[in-house]
Design a protein around this nucleic acid. Structure first.
Lengths: 252, 252
DNA sequence: AGGCGCTTGTGAAGGCGTGCACAAATCGCG
DNA sequence: CGCGATTTGTGCACGCCTTCACAAGCGCCT
């Protein structure tokens, strides 16, 4: 599910390999969403395994169909060798290049409640190449607090600092009521990507990308599936606890 | 994008309204994912506005196309009145019923690091009808700690407690290496829905639903769009800061 | 009572994504 | 040097989802 999308108006030459410059083959959104998963799987494998991997193997590690994986990778060029597989190092490089991970992007985090605190200290960001360079909150009592070596600043400094530090990505972890105002400030400061944890819809200009993570929505979706499963009572192979271990392939 | 899905094998009578019993019109996954969003919008509106709302109005509040909203709602029956709109209260009731929110579902949370702590205290869960009834961690030094009035238990009690408390949904906020083992225990204890925050693929039986939230992946997707935007330098309406305020409709 | 405006519900078309199945390509071995 | 085993890259068909456009239905006003 692509989240809030926008007109892209690309129109590049189709067949040119991504040399080292602009010019993007416009990738399907679904593919883009899976590339980070492939990348993670590659890093896990790269630690221990051989220097080449088949589409079947990588697909299993990433939890997808091998045909899908091949098609995804084919969109960014031919970086595999028939009869052999994909060069792990080269593939990592390519995916990181396409995702733009070779360039450090400055991230700021707004809202340091429970969730914001956790995000500020989340290992996953740093270990995947993102660095939070500034923290903001509206609560004066939080300003000045040190979190992971970063000082919390007042939100009124957000606009200025965002410009100074050339921040590209803003993370909103404020209450819903404050989120739109924060987004407006971020946009004015030139931020063009927003990750929104507040449970609300954000209005932004068309050139700004917004992705939303709503924890409660995820639970509600699971709740639906629970409800559905519960309404199918009389079924073979019901609810008896399966024997230990994981005996199942990872569905599509 | 539906996450890890599984064969459903439904086959219900198509035209029957959801009276008060089982029998589900199998909703499209995409629709299910949007229902919580509609529900939130309805709650926001219900506080202040009239007791009826048009598809156009609700669609705007939820950030979607009005045609899509009507089709989504039509899947769960005709709860609107032509020429008038949807009865807010009735619609809320219906969506909550379909999502199974009228029944409290017990949730447990495993892993009380940074993220787990935040999730344990997250208002959004309680306010949307979910109640975390148990906390678990493998770290003995965390066991016994009180968080939001709940005592952290050792993970070896997970299986027993999950059965006792009839827990339906498990939230995994452990490091990636521990996640699969935790999932196995949850599954053995009869948990049939898992929300996974660990950056890894989980293997579970086909009757268990898994949804995954990976914060780093969200950032990487945004990073791609940043990269793409940056590679389209020479464009009209470039990067000059827009004037204050939000001047844009919320794209599809 | 009749007509008019408004809004829902839906048929149909188009686009996107998935997965199969196979041709093309590469390696290794005899 | 040729052959077979292996694996990538992709043409094609199918199904899901989105979007448009419009008929059907409802309430209100005259």
């Amino acid at each position: 599910m692509s989240q809030q999308r926008h007109g892209v108006t690309p129109g590049n030459a189709p067949g040119d390999r991504a040399g080292a410059v602009p010019a993007f083959p416009d990738l399907p959104e679904a593919t883009i969403a899976r590339l980070p998963e492939y990348l993670r799987a590659l890093h896990n494998l790269g630690d221990a395994a051989a220097d080449t991997i088949s589409s079947e193997g990588l697909a299993a590690a990433a939890g997808v169909n091998s045909a899908k994986l091949r098609k995804d990778l084919s969109h960014l060029g031919s970086y595999g060798t028939r009869g052999v597989g994909y060069d792990v190092t080269l593939l990592i490089e390519q995916i990181e290049y396409v995702l733009g991970l070779d360039q450090r992007r400055a991230v700021c985090l707004v809202g340091l409640g429970n969730l914001g605190h956790a995000l500020a200290g989340y290992d996953g960001f740093a270990s995947r190449g993102f660095k939070i360079v500034a923290l903001f909150d509206a609560d004066a009592s939080k300003v000045g607090e040190l979190i992971q070596g970063l000082e919390v600043r007042h939100i009124e400094d957000l606009g200025r600092v965002a410009v100074e530090e050339n921040i590209a990505i803003g993370v909103i972890a404020t209450p819903a009521l404050a989120a739109q105002a924060v987004a407006d400030v971020l946009v004015d400061a030139g931020v063009t990507s927003i990750l929104n944890f507040a449970p609300c819809v954000l209005s932004v200009p068309a050139n700004v990308d917004v992705r939303k993570v709503d924890l409660a929505i995820e639970l509600q979706i699971l709740s639906f599936h629970e409800h559905r499963k519960a309404s199918l009572t009389a079924l073979p192979g019901g609810r008896s606890a399966a024997s230990a271990g994981n005996q199942e392939a990872v569905g599509s």
